[in-house]
Amino acid sequence: MDSINLIFILILAGFLGFELIKKVPATLHTPLMSGANAISGVTLIGALAASGSDQNVLTTILGTLAIVFATMNVVGGYMVTDRMLAMFKSKTNNK
């Protein structure tokens, strides 16, 4: 892909990220972080392609290891975030 397109995406995604995350209240900062962990497990997508589409043994091994760690992040990250967010209760549904 053109590097100019990549830079375009980089800058827009960066600004969008700042705007979105600035609005997250302090009370949710821990779930935000564990949720971000899950999203950063997106490396999984790259790893899937790498380990599945190549004949080279080293690439396959590296890709598979990347899948292991990225999956841990995705699965563990989303689950623990859900567990935490389920605990946040409002006054109205608490009593």
């Binding site: 995406i9 995604a13 960066g14 990220g17 700042f18 972080m33 971000a36 999203i39 950063s40 997508i45």
Partner: peptide, 13 residues
């Protein structure tokens, strides 16, 4: 998708 999602996390941190 790696680029966009990674940056969202980077900005958050």
């Amino acid at each position: 998708i790696l680029i966009v999602a990674g940056l969202l996390v980077g900005a958050s941190g």
